[in-house]
């Protein structure tokens, strides 16, 4: 009788990975790497092309003079020039260092708070809803307070970045732990898991997908807070992407301004993409399928 299961075992093991979306007829050669990349990336590419086309149409309509709203070709050329300059990389370095430090600290603080709150019923009652409240608070509203507390300094920026990101991260882990299936807890209890070992081996790993979703959201908040901070808290000796935005606006250099905006957008998407990859990988290994 076990042959039936064994047969399935072989069948399953040999079955194609679920990531392959289209079914290839027997005997045809596999799609080449190039065409597979093209197959996956044409929808976003098309979206970019359509955006550029619309932009071009608006430009050609003469709605705004060209020194206020330049055409895509000019802006993209400026972006290229900017990326080639050393000053840009210095600014990028400052911004990315702040992003890494702020998000890293938020990660540590948010995770710790999330774990402690989910562990203690009293703490949950005390600050559970406050964490959600903080999440809805626009981070820019914190800046006047942060500037009074820390002056126009790195600390003021980091403070707000952490306040922006940590609640999402804490909420991710709290809701993840809340949603661990009771059946898994019962099974683990029968297997002898108690207290800390139950947390370490079952509750925390089970909450991982929700935690990663929280990280993604936390990153989005951190990035927004950081850009707001760099516009408001300008430190003269430190060129940053935010300072460049301000600088280009003051000189009414829309092409330069839009170039920096494109860089900010692309950077945010890149990091989100990395987090999504990790998150989808974790989900796929559990048979949960990717979330888009």
């Amino acid at each position: 009788m076990s042959d039936i299961d064994a047969g399935r075992l072989v069948g399953k093991a040999a079955a194609p990975s679920r990531r392959i979306r289209f079914i290839r007829p027997e005997g045809q050669p596999a799609a080449s790497l190039g065409s597979r990349i093209l197959g996956r990336s044409w929808p976003p590419l098309l979206a970019v092309i359509i955006t550029l086309l619309l932009w071009q149409v608006v430009y050609l309509s003469g709605w705004r003079p060209s020194y206020v709203l330049p055409d895509p070709a000019t802006v993209l050329q400026r972006t290229g020039e900017m990326v080639a300059s050393g000053k840009f990389w210095q600014a990028l370095g400052t911004t990315m260092f702040r992003a890494a430090a702020g998000f890293g600290l938020a990660l540590g603080i948010g995770t710790l708070i999330g774990l402690v709150v989910s562990f203690s019923r009293t703490l949950r009652a005390a600050i559970g809803s406050m964490i959600t409240g903080l999440q809805t608070m626009p981070s820019i509203a914190w800046f006047p307070f942060a500037i009074l507390l820390f002056g126009l300094s790195e600390s003021a920026i980091l403070f707000v970045v952490i306040l922006g990101a940590a609640p999402s991260i804490a909420n991710g882990i709290i809701s993840g732990i809340d949603d661990v299936p009771k059946a898994l807890i019962r099974t683990a209890t029968v297997l002898g898991a108690r207290g800390l070992s139950l947390y370490r081996y079952v509750v925390v790993p089970a909450a991982l997908p929700a935690y990663l979703s929280g990280l993604k959201q936390g990153w989005a908040f951190a990035w927004r807070s950081l850009m707001a901070g760099e516009l408001l808290v300008i430190i003269a000796s430190k060129p940053s992407l935010g300072v460049q935005l301000q600088f280009h606006r003051e000189f009414a250099d829309t092409a330069g301004l839009m170039s920096v905006m494109i860089i900010i957008l692309v950077l945010g998407m890149l990091i989100d993409g990395v987090l999504s990859r990790v998150s989808n990988g974790v989900r796929a290994r559990r048979g949960m399928g990717p979330v888009s």
Partner: peptide
């Protein structure tokens, strides 16, 4: 030891 209707294997 105990078994349930659902295997309740840890999916990770």
């Amino acid at each position: 030891g105990m078994m349930f209707q659902d295997a309740n294997l840890f999916p990770w």
